[in-house]
Design a protein around this nucleic acid. Sequence first.
DNA 1: CTGAAAGCGCTAACAC
DNA 2: GTGTTAGCGCTTTCAG
Lengths: 361, 361
Amino acid sequence: MAGDRRDTVKRSAGDAGASLRQGPVTMRDIARATGLSQSTVSRVLNRTPTVVPIAEATRARVLAVAQELGYRPNPLARGLRGASTMLLGVIVRDITDPFFAGAIEAVTVEASRRGYNVVLGHAHARADEAIALWAVLEARHCDAIVLFGDMGDQPRLIEDLAGARVPVVALWQGSRPTNVASVSVDNRAGIHAVLQHLAALGHRRIAYVGARALGDIKEREEAYVEFMARLDEPVPDGYIRHEPNEFAGGVAAFDALFELPQPPTAVVTSTDVLAIGTLHAARVRGLAVPQEVSIAGFDDIPVAEFTVPALTTVRMPVRKMVAKAVQMVLDDAQLDASRPAILQPSLVARASTDRVSGPSS
Amino acid sequence: MAGDRRDTVKRSAGDAGASLRQGPVTMRDIARATGLSQSTVSRVLNRTPTVVPIAEATRARVLAVAQELGYRPNPLARGLRGASTMLLGVIVRDITDPFFAGAIEAVTVEASRRGYNVVLGHAHARADEAIALWAVLEARHCDAIVLFGDMGDQPRLIEDLAGARVPVVALWQGSRPTNVASVSVDNRAGIHAVLQHLAALGHRRIAYVGARALGDIKEREEAYVEFMARLDEPVPDGYIRHEPNEFAGGVAAFDALFELPQPPTAVVTSTDVLAIGTLHAARVRGLAVPQEVSIAGFDDIPVAEFTVPALTTVRMPVRKMVAKAVQMVLDDAQLDASRPAILQPSLVARASTDRVSGPSS
DNA sequence: CTGAAAGCGCTAACAC
DNA sequence: GTGTTAGCGCTTTCAG
């Protein structure tokens, strides 16, 4: 059934087919065309360094012919033979999440800088699919695997990964040690920074909106609870809202918050995505941001700077984190699973937060 | 240098290693364990249908052992042998673009429904990188390639693709016939729909903001020009603004528009991304949307429903388009390059557009 | 119904 | 310096 797509027509080498690109050109073709052996061709094309010396003339000839014939190595064959596939597997929980979109871009850039290509597996918000993906990627002979997002609800995946035959590193999994090396952000510091900012503006009734707690999100919620306690500010019932990490989740949370007898004067969300939904809900309710309610997010996704009003948030050092992860996983460095690398976020104060000003009371 | 990562330790088959997953289990291992030949194992595992009958007992035994040993086929070897790799290559111009993020998700879903994985190549807004990518993907033996975005400024890529050994289909390239099969949207209908909507609300001074014209974007601009002409409404100088397709581009365009002696009462953008920037700029200038200026986008990206105010836009039938493209390219159907498949968009009227109401004059 | 054998394109010992 | 020779794990004739 398959196979009928393959060209059986082979041009005799030396054919004048200048720019007429032909089917797959193999090393054998080059060997024939140059009158050399395939292994010599291989050696030249792999620039086997000092180990095996090659006559300069030979090398030039091979290179020339390879160029002319438009030779391109077959990564499958290479991979089969045990060489590296120059493939970096990335498993991401939800591509739709603008935050991960940025991360994917970052990892692609970082990978291609090292000559790697990225195979993207998409678990579509279901971590159990990620398990299958993982199998695929390993089988696919990726040289390394990077995991994006909190797969914490799938301990099995994490365990499997720990026993992987390729290096694995996880990003944004929260900073609790797992079985797999990871790069995280200091969620506590981030949340404390926004809350500090809000507190300094006079806010005391601050609500929190986040997804059900796993990984990073869990830490953010805990940091919120901790900070409020330290502020000696009791958190009223209903001030902690759990909603799926989507725009609509932010809307739902905000609506619920403002049905409360004593609504908050500020809302902190676990991600910018939720914050954007919140911004929208405020508008729909006719509440002015930041005059009547302040809103702050977390991540600093690209659109955060352009929301209405611009969103105060915590900037995630995405590129740095990704670079770190890629370096760890490709340089095969000490993949120490017990001690995650933790990077620092920073507060970005924009127009969505301001002094508290008595809305009604 | 490479290779030291490979386990040389081979467990003798039959070992009690129940859940202790071991290194790569090959067909040979299964053959040995069952006492059958490798080819039989292969036949079973490939469910070679009616062609080659297999004793039920044999089949069961192989399956059982394969299961127990945790066998997973090596796609590299499969691919080498000429079989399909179950890999769908996707080249996307800019992952950061929220629109493409949605498209990627759609293609991943569609692909995995057919048992395919997606290899994502990211051209990072530079189409010349896409050329290299294309080479990579082909060499990577993808069974098919899907192109996202207007690579129209890189005729070379398109030409190369036309001579590809694997089926290729391009999405969002504009509807002009190229050398490669494509799926497009009726940009003209989309733009006319928004403009019609705006005109019905009483708008006459309508500006257009779009990226430099290629592919879809070009068609949208042309449709705008055409519609305004038909409306018998001269387009004042400076009402057509070219900005990069980024949030910041929308800001810049809006600012320029409102420096004009006679600013527009409505702004139509070629994409939602630009519209969002525009919304932001309006807020910064203190112009109320939609009371003082109406704004409409194109694409209906997920966030469009949650902007402030919610964005009127043209809904791109992303899933349908992607499904169509995947079907074309995988079912190897008639890849007719001369006649693009064109799907219809639909207007989504939301809060960012309203009747024109004399702002100042 | 099953086995033996020939490679896919490439790398890596090992010879000369 | 270069050629020979084995395979990597799998599919696929071609023989039993």
